[in-house]
Amino acid sequence: MAVIALAGCSGAPGVTTSALALLLSWPLETGRRMILAECDPDGGAVLHGLLQASLGDRYGLRNLSVAARKGEFSEAFWRQLIDLSGEDDARESPRDRLLLPGITDPAQAASLGPVWKVIAQMFRGIDAQSGHDVLIDLGRRGAYGPSGSWPSRPTP
Rank of each mutant, 00 (worst) to 15 (best):
G8H: 12
C9A: 11
S10R: 08
S10Y: 13
G14D: 11
V15D: 01
T16S: 10
T17F: 12
S18I: 07
A19L: 03
L24I: 01
W26I: 04
P27E: 05
P27K: 00
L28A: 01
T30C: 00
G31E: 00
I35A: 04
I35R: 03
L36N: 12
E38T: 06
P41H: 02
G43R: 03
G44M: 04
V46M: 04
G49D: 06
L51A: 03
A53Y: 10
A53I: 01
S54I: 02
L55M: 05
R58H: 12
Y59H: 10
L61S: 04
R62Q: 07
S65P: 01
V66F: 08
V66Q: 10
S74I: 11
Q80D: 05
D83R: 10
L84S: 07
S85F: 13
E87I: 01
R91F: 00
S93V: 00
L98I: 13
L98E: 11
G102E: 08
G102I: 11
T104W: 03
A107M: 14
L112C: 15
V115I: 10
K117V: 08
M122C: 15
G125E: 14
Q129H: 12
S130R: 10
V134S: 09
I136C: 05
D137F: 03
G142S: 05
G145C: 02
S147C: 15
S147K: 01
S149C: 08
S149Q: 14
P151I: 13
